[in-house]
Design a protein around this nucleic acid. Structure first.
Lengths: 254, 254
DNA sequence: CGTTACCTTGAATCTCCTCAATACACGTGG
DNA sequence: CCACGTGTATTGAGGAGATTCAAGGTAACG
């Protein structure tokens, strides 16, 4: 086998759950020793993908359940003629494919937005998890309900918020979630979302999204240039979004 | 105690789960004898409410988890200045307050759209259900994920569908869900949604919703006059909505 | 028979979309 | 090294779509 240098070096480390870097964050609740033991053998591998790679496809089924270890992904649905609506983003600690595991087909597509590392779990053992670990089963349901909340917030945005409110809301939510996932350093976040993707998130055309951003920048509540987003004041941004400032809640992981 | 006649006679029957009328429908999967035994003592009562009554309030918490036995309810969120967005409808067999049971507060409000009868379950015993009945725990998660799917579909509608598509989609979805819940007789459905509520569901103003309905009626795919909705062709309506015709899947109950 | 809730319609205004052109950063091959 | 293509961001102009305001209309109910 040739030993030519790969175009892009990939992390080869298999990260066991007892050394999960996410669990160090105080965002996530701790495992009991029994839960940890179960997770160590439940996790069946890691999946390392380049940005732009498709992870799940609407209508197809997947033998795996994923958790994001690092990187960003986004979930979306498309209409027959190609119109695309982003439903949600998956950040480190978030599930991918829970629905596809519970039903037999995925209701939406998922694509890697950056290079990502996913923890892989075999979906047929999800039943074991439910049968043997009530706490983990509850966590799974918790995470599902949490996603539903985010979807509900997005639905309110798209249905009832004005253009500036909508854009402000999405920027704020993503920034706050990234902050909880430990991705914000010195108030700055590596933000891989393009304006086109943002447009498909808020339900506007690209052009109108761009013009709305221009108006919004005048508020000085944030700066977004190139790939970094800095939020000067979450409170001010929350006000612009007609919402309350995001908190710092604790949540389950996996 | 006076025995004056009540302004509106209310059904007094306490319906035990072994005689649940919904379970007769072949939409819902059967309980095992053990599950049935558990549910019989899990259900702690029935709540009978008039149309217009508030069931849950956004931000508050509730000691109960509900299931709709009969009637319609709707879930909604409001912005600080009063704008309202409907998130979903609850039909017989649907949960109300699952999120409020899992987190400590409800993320949305719920109001009775018609007179409703709710099955009441104490939320602190939800843990017992998870601990003792894996199948039921899975069903709870299934129902939560199912709701998330519906929210996702609505989000696509509001974000990307045209006016006529949007209205057609909501009418079709509600009709199909009502059909599965056994509410459609001879192709006709008692449809308690007002145009104002429909407007807050699809994200349009009342006026524009009305004009969109007028245009849609020309298709002859449905009639909606007074309180009854008749769908002549779900396929045609699905086409108008840029979606695929709804099926007849089996689902868990409670 | 008047009140109330809901539906309907027209007109003026504003929001948002499409089309089109430009600009910039980046990587690739000549 | 430069020319070129690709992906992303930006801006203007004109038109379609949605909102608001305003005025009626109908059916149910006390």
């Amino acid at each position: 086998m040739s030993s030519k240098r790969a175009t892009k070096p990939k992390p080869k480390v298999q990260t066991p759950c007892d050394r999960c870097p996410l669990r160090g964050l105080d965002t996530f609740r701790d495992f009991t020793p029994e839960e940890l033991a179960f997770m160590l053998e439940f996790k069946s591998g890691e999946l390392v993908l380049d940005a732009g790679t498709s992870i799940l496809h609407e209508g197809s089924n997947s033998p795996h359940l994923y958790t994001v270890l690092s990187g960003w992904a986004y979930k979306y649905k498309t209409l027959p003629d190609g119109r695309r609506q982003v439903l949600n983003y998956a950040l480190p600690g978030d599930f991918i494919g829970l629905q596809a595991s519970i039903f037999d087909v995925s209701s939406h597509s998922v694509e890697a937005l950056t290079d990502v590392v996913l923890c892989v779990f075999p979906r047929e053992r999800l039943w074991d998890l439910f049968a043997r670990h009530t706490g983990l089963a509850f966590d799974v349901t918790w995470l599902g309900a949490h996603e539903e909340n985010i979807l509900g917030d997005f639905l309110v945005s798209v249905g009832k918020r004005s253009a500036t409110e909508r854009v402000a809301f999405v920027l704020l939510q993503l920034f706050a979630r990234a902050r909880q996932a430990g991705l914000v350093k010195n108030g700055a976040l590596g933000f891989p979302v393009t304006q086109e993707l943002l447009a498909d998130t808020v339900g506007f055309s690209l052009v109108h999204t761009n013009k709305t951003l221009k108006r919004l920048r005048r508020s000085k509540a944030f700066t977004w240039q190139g790939p970094t987003l800095e939020v000067a004041s979450e409170d001010k941004l929350a006000e612009l979004a007609s919402t309350s400032p995001p908190g710092t809640g604790r949540r389950p992981l996996i």
